[in-house]
Amino acid sequence: MSKKCSRRNFIKKSIAGAVAAGLPLSAFKLLAPGEARAALKESNLRWAFLVDTRKCVGCGFCVKACKKENEVPYDVPVTRTWVERYVVTRDGRTHIDSPMGGRDGFTYKRIREEEIPDSEITKAFFVPKLCNQCQNPACVQVCPVGATYQTTDGVVLVDRTWCIGCGYCIMACPYGVRFFHPVHKVAEKCTFCYHRITKGLKTACVDACPFGARRIGNIKDENDPVTKTILTERVAVLKDEYGTKPHVFYLGLDERVR
Protein backbone atom coordinates (compact mmCIF):
# COMPACT_ATOMS: atom_id res chain seq x y z
CA MET A 1 0.00 0.00 0.00
CA SER A 2 1.49 3.30 -1.11
CA LYS A 3 -1.07 5.61 0.50
CA LYS A 4 -0.76 5.98 4.19
CA CYS A 5 -3.81 6.29 6.41
CA SER A 6 -4.09 10.08 6.62
CA ARG A 7 -7.11 11.87 8.02
CA ARG A 8 -8.08 13.00 4.50
CA ASN A 9 -7.92 9.47 3.19
CA PHE A 10 -9.88 8.08 6.10
CA ILE A 11 -12.75 10.56 5.67
CA LYS A 12 -12.83 10.04 1.88
CA LYS A 13 -13.05 6.31 2.24
CA SER A 14 -15.66 6.50 4.99
CA ILE A 15 -17.92 8.66 2.82
CA ALA A 16 -17.42 6.42 -0.21
CA GLY A 17 -18.19 3.38 1.93
CA ALA A 18 -21.36 4.91 3.33
CA VAL A 19 -22.58 5.90 -0.16
CA ALA A 20 -21.78 2.46 -1.52
CA ALA A 21 -23.64 0.78 1.31
CA GLY A 22 -26.63 3.11 1.09
CA LEU A 23 -27.18 3.27 -2.67
CA PRO A 24 -27.84 -0.36 -3.53
CA LEU A 25 -30.28 -0.64 -0.59
CA SER A 26 -32.41 2.29 -1.72
CA ALA A 27 -32.23 1.10 -5.34
CA PHE A 28 -33.46 -2.32 -4.27
CA LYS A 29 -36.32 -0.74 -2.32
CA LEU A 30 -37.54 1.06 -5.44
CA LEU A 31 -37.50 -2.09 -7.52
CA ALA A 32 -39.20 -4.53 -5.13
CA PRO A 33 -41.72 -6.07 -7.56
CA GLY A 34 -44.28 -7.26 -5.06
CA GLU A 35 -44.63 -3.87 -3.43
CA ALA A 36 -44.85 -2.06 -6.74
CA ARG A 37 -47.52 -4.45 -8.01
CA ALA A 38 -49.50 -4.32 -4.78
CA ALA A 39 -49.40 -0.53 -4.71
CA LEU A 40 -50.36 -0.09 -8.35
CA LYS A 41 -53.09 -2.43 -9.50
CA GLU A 42 -54.26 -4.94 -6.93
CA SER A 43 -54.99 -2.49 -4.16
CA ASN A 44 -58.69 -1.94 -4.80
CA LEU A 45 -59.82 -5.07 -2.94
CA ARG A 46 -59.31 -5.91 0.74
CA TRP A 47 -61.74 -8.27 2.44
CA ALA A 48 -63.06 -7.32 5.85
CA PHE A 49 -65.64 -8.87 8.15
CA LEU A 50 -68.27 -7.29 10.36
CA VAL A 51 -69.84 -9.07 13.32
CA ASP A 52 -72.83 -7.58 15.11
CA THR A 53 -72.82 -9.26 18.52
CA ARG A 54 -76.18 -7.69 19.37
CA LYS A 55 -77.86 -9.63 16.56
CA CYS A 56 -76.29 -13.02 17.28
CA VAL A 57 -78.69 -15.44 19.00
CA GLY A 58 -76.22 -18.30 19.28
CA CYS A 59 -78.00 -20.66 16.86
CA GLY A 60 -74.65 -21.97 15.59
CA PHE A 61 -75.82 -22.37 11.98
CA CYS A 62 -72.65 -20.53 10.95
CA VAL A 63 -70.42 -23.14 12.60
CA LYS A 64 -72.40 -26.01 11.07
CA ALA A 65 -72.28 -24.46 7.59
CA CYS A 66 -68.55 -23.67 7.90
CA LYS A 67 -67.64 -27.20 8.90
CA LYS A 68 -69.64 -28.75 6.06
CA GLU A 69 -68.59 -26.22 3.44
CA ASN A 70 -64.90 -26.47 4.26
CA GLU A 71 -64.76 -30.20 4.98
CA VAL A 72 -63.65 -29.82 8.59
CA PRO A 73 -64.43 -33.17 10.30
CA TYR A 74 -67.85 -32.63 11.87
CA ASP A 75 -67.51 -34.51 15.13
CA VAL A 76 -63.92 -33.57 15.94
CA PRO A 77 -63.71 -30.61 18.35
CA VAL A 78 -61.85 -28.35 15.91
CA THR A 79 -63.48 -25.58 13.89
CA ARG A 80 -62.55 -22.60 11.73
CA THR A 81 -65.21 -20.43 13.32
CA TRP A 82 -67.00 -20.69 16.62
CA VAL A 83 -69.51 -18.90 18.82
CA GLU A 84 -68.80 -18.02 22.46
CA ARG A 85 -71.46 -17.40 25.09
CA TYR A 86 -70.81 -14.78 27.76
CA VAL A 87 -73.06 -14.61 30.80
CA VAL A 88 -72.26 -11.90 33.35
CA THR A 89 -73.79 -12.36 36.81
CA ARG A 90 -74.48 -9.94 39.66
CA ASP A 91 -71.41 -11.07 41.59
CA GLY A 92 -69.25 -9.72 38.72
CA ARG A 93 -68.24 -13.11 37.37
CA THR A 94 -68.20 -13.85 33.66
CA HIS A 95 -69.29 -17.34 32.62
CA ILE A 96 -67.97 -18.31 29.20
CA ASP A 97 -68.57 -21.46 27.19
CA SER A 98 -68.55 -22.70 23.62
CA PRO A 99 -69.53 -26.40 23.54
CA MET A 100 -68.24 -27.95 20.27
CA GLY A 101 -67.59 -24.38 19.12
CA GLY A 102 -71.34 -23.73 19.28
CA ARG A 103 -71.90 -26.15 16.38
CA ASP A 104 -75.27 -27.29 17.77
CA GLY A 105 -76.22 -23.92 19.15
CA PHE A 106 -76.89 -23.10 22.79
CA THR A 107 -79.95 -24.97 23.98
CA TYR A 108 -79.48 -25.00 27.75
CA LYS A 109 -78.99 -22.38 30.43
CA ARG A 110 -76.39 -24.55 32.10
CA ILE A 111 -72.80 -23.31 31.63
CA ARG A 112 -69.92 -25.65 32.42
CA GLU A 113 -72.11 -27.79 34.71
CA GLU A 114 -73.29 -24.68 36.55
CA GLU A 115 -76.96 -23.65 36.70
CA ILE A 116 -77.27 -19.87 36.63
CA PRO A 117 -80.68 -18.46 37.68
CA ASP A 118 -82.11 -15.84 35.30
CA SER A 119 -82.41 -13.33 38.15
CA GLU A 120 -78.63 -13.42 38.66
CA ILE A 121 -77.82 -12.46 35.05
CA THR A 122 -77.02 -8.81 34.42
CA LYS A 123 -76.09 -9.22 30.76
CA ALA A 124 -75.51 -12.09 28.41
CA PHE A 125 -74.59 -12.29 24.76
CA PHE A 126 -72.99 -14.37 22.02
CA VAL A 127 -69.75 -13.56 20.20
CA PRO A 128 -68.93 -15.30 16.91
CA LYS A 129 -65.23 -15.61 16.22
CA LEU A 130 -63.21 -16.43 13.13
CA CYS A 131 -59.85 -15.60 11.56
CA ASN A 132 -59.16 -11.87 11.75
CA GLN A 133 -57.21 -11.90 8.44
CA CYS A 134 -54.75 -9.48 10.04
CA GLN A 135 -52.86 -6.92 8.02
CA ASN A 136 -49.74 -7.97 9.96
CA PRO A 137 -50.41 -11.67 10.54
CA ALA A 138 -48.13 -13.15 13.20
CA CYS A 139 -48.89 -16.65 11.93
CA VAL A 140 -47.40 -15.82 8.52
CA GLN A 141 -44.29 -14.21 9.98
CA VAL A 142 -43.32 -17.36 11.87
CA CYS A 143 -43.82 -19.89 9.04
CA PRO A 144 -40.35 -21.32 8.36
CA VAL A 145 -41.15 -22.72 4.89
CA GLY A 146 -43.43 -20.19 3.17
CA ALA A 147 -46.50 -22.43 3.44
CA THR A 148 -48.79 -19.72 4.79
CA TYR A 149 -49.09 -16.31 3.22
CA GLN A 150 -51.26 -13.28 2.70
CA THR A 151 -52.98 -12.79 -0.65
CA THR A 152 -53.09 -9.34 -2.21
CA ASP A 153 -56.75 -9.06 -1.16
CA GLY A 154 -55.80 -9.57 2.47
CA VAL A 155 -56.75 -13.20 3.11
CA VAL A 156 -54.26 -15.49 4.88
CA LEU A 157 -54.13 -18.95 3.32
CA VAL A 158 -52.24 -22.19 4.00
CA ASP A 159 -50.60 -24.20 1.21
CA ARG A 160 -51.48 -27.77 2.19
CA THR A 161 -48.84 -29.24 -0.12
CA TRP A 162 -46.11 -27.11 1.41
CA CYS A 163 -46.97 -27.08 5.15
CA ILE A 164 -44.65 -29.29 7.21
CA GLY A 165 -46.97 -29.29 10.24
CA CYS A 166 -44.50 -27.72 12.65
CA GLY A 167 -47.30 -25.85 14.43
CA TYR A 168 -45.45 -22.53 14.88
CA CYS A 169 -48.38 -20.65 13.35
CA ILE A 170 -50.83 -22.33 15.72
CA MET A 171 -48.72 -21.04 18.63
CA ALA A 172 -48.23 -17.58 17.10
CA CYS A 173 -51.86 -16.67 16.42
CA PRO A 174 -53.03 -14.42 19.29
CA TYR A 175 -56.65 -15.26 18.51
CA GLY A 176 -56.30 -19.05 18.60
CA VAL A 177 -58.00 -19.50 15.22
CA ARG A 178 -55.49 -21.98 13.84
CA PHE A 179 -55.54 -25.70 14.47
CA PHE A 180 -54.12 -28.91 13.12
CA HIS A 181 -56.31 -30.50 10.43
CA PRO A 182 -56.94 -34.07 11.58
CA VAL A 183 -57.21 -35.42 8.02
CA HIS A 184 -54.68 -33.43 6.02
CA LYS A 185 -52.21 -33.23 8.93
CA VAL A 186 -51.36 -29.60 8.21
CA ALA A 187 -52.18 -26.24 9.75
CA GLU A 188 -55.77 -25.20 9.10
CA LYS A 189 -57.57 -21.89 9.36
CA CYS A 190 -60.52 -19.83 8.19
CA THR A 191 -60.03 -18.69 4.58
CA PHE A 192 -63.02 -16.28 4.51
CA CYS A 193 -64.32 -19.04 2.17
CA TYR A 194 -61.83 -17.90 -0.47
CA HIS A 195 -63.43 -20.24 -3.02
CA ARG A 196 -66.76 -18.49 -2.51
CA ILE A 197 -65.81 -14.81 -2.17
CA THR A 198 -63.66 -14.98 -5.32
CA LYS A 199 -66.77 -16.20 -7.20
CA GLY A 200 -68.95 -13.34 -5.96
CA LEU A 201 -70.67 -15.39 -3.26
CA LYS A 202 -70.70 -14.63 0.45
CA THR A 203 -68.93 -16.90 2.92
CA ALA A 204 -70.85 -19.98 4.10
CA CYS A 205 -71.22 -18.53 7.60
CA VAL A 206 -72.56 -15.20 6.31
CA ASP A 207 -75.14 -16.99 4.14
CA ALA A 208 -76.14 -19.30 6.99
CA CYS A 209 -76.69 -16.53 9.53
CA PRO A 210 -80.46 -15.86 9.74
CA PHE A 211 -80.08 -12.56 11.59
CA GLY A 212 -77.40 -10.72 9.64
CA ALA A 213 -74.96 -10.86 12.55
CA ARG A 214 -72.16 -11.74 10.12
CA ARG A 215 -71.30 -9.69 7.04
CA ILE A 216 -68.36 -9.54 4.68
CA GLY A 217 -67.27 -6.74 2.37
CA ASN A 218 -64.48 -4.91 0.61
CA ILE A 219 -63.03 -2.32 2.96
CA LYS A 220 -61.40 -0.44 0.08
CA ASP A 221 -64.75 0.23 -1.57
CA GLU A 222 -66.40 3.17 0.18
CA ASN A 223 -69.80 2.29 -1.31
CA ASP A 224 -69.77 -1.20 0.13
CA PRO A 225 -72.52 -1.35 2.81
CA VAL A 226 -70.17 -3.18 5.22
CA THR A 227 -67.44 -0.58 4.73
CA LYS A 228 -69.99 2.19 5.27
CA THR A 229 -70.97 0.65 8.59
CA ILE A 230 -67.33 0.24 9.66
CA LEU A 231 -66.59 3.84 8.69
CA THR A 232 -69.65 5.42 10.32
CA GLU A 233 -70.45 3.24 13.34
CA ARG A 234 -68.43 2.57 16.50
CA VAL A 235 -66.61 -0.66 15.84
CA ALA A 236 -63.97 -2.51 17.82
CA VAL A 237 -61.41 -5.20 17.06
CA LEU A 238 -60.02 -7.98 19.23
CA LYS A 239 -56.58 -7.60 20.86
CA ASP A 240 -55.75 -4.32 19.18
CA GLU A 241 -52.68 -4.00 21.42
CA TYR A 242 -50.92 -6.80 19.54
CA GLY A 243 -50.51 -4.56 16.50
CA THR A 244 -51.72 -7.26 14.12
CA LYS A 245 -54.31 -4.92 12.56
CA PRO A 246 -57.20 -7.41 12.54
CA HIS A 247 -59.86 -7.04 9.83
CA VAL A 248 -62.80 -8.57 11.66
CA PHE A 249 -64.74 -5.67 13.16
CA TYR A 250 -67.26 -5.99 15.98
CA LEU A 251 -70.35 -3.97 16.79
CA GLY A 252 -71.44 -4.03 20.42
CA LEU A 253 -68.27 -5.68 21.71
CA ASP A 254 -68.01 -5.97 25.49
CA GLU A 255 -64.76 -5.37 27.38
CA ARG A 256 -65.03 -8.90 28.78
CA VAL A 257 -64.51 -10.37 25.32
CA ARG A 258 -60.89 -11.26 24.71
Partner: peptide
Protein backbone atom coordinates in the same frame (compact mmCIF):
# COMPACT_ATOMS: atom_id res chain seq x y z
CA UNK B 1 -80.90 -23.69 18.37
CA UNK B 2 -83.14 -20.62 18.38
CA UNK B 3 -86.21 -21.61 20.40
CA UNK B 4 -84.72 -22.97 23.63
CA UNK B 5 -85.51 -20.33 26.24
CA UNK B 6 -82.46 -18.16 27.03
CA UNK B 7 -83.87 -14.80 28.16
CA UNK B 8 -80.58 -12.94 27.83
CA UNK B 9 -80.66 -9.16 28.27
CA UNK B 10 -78.59 -7.46 25.59
CA UNK B 11 -78.99 -10.24 23.05
CA UNK B 12 -81.69 -10.72 20.41
CA UNK B 13 -82.02 -14.28 21.65
Amino acid sequence: RCHADLPYPGSQR
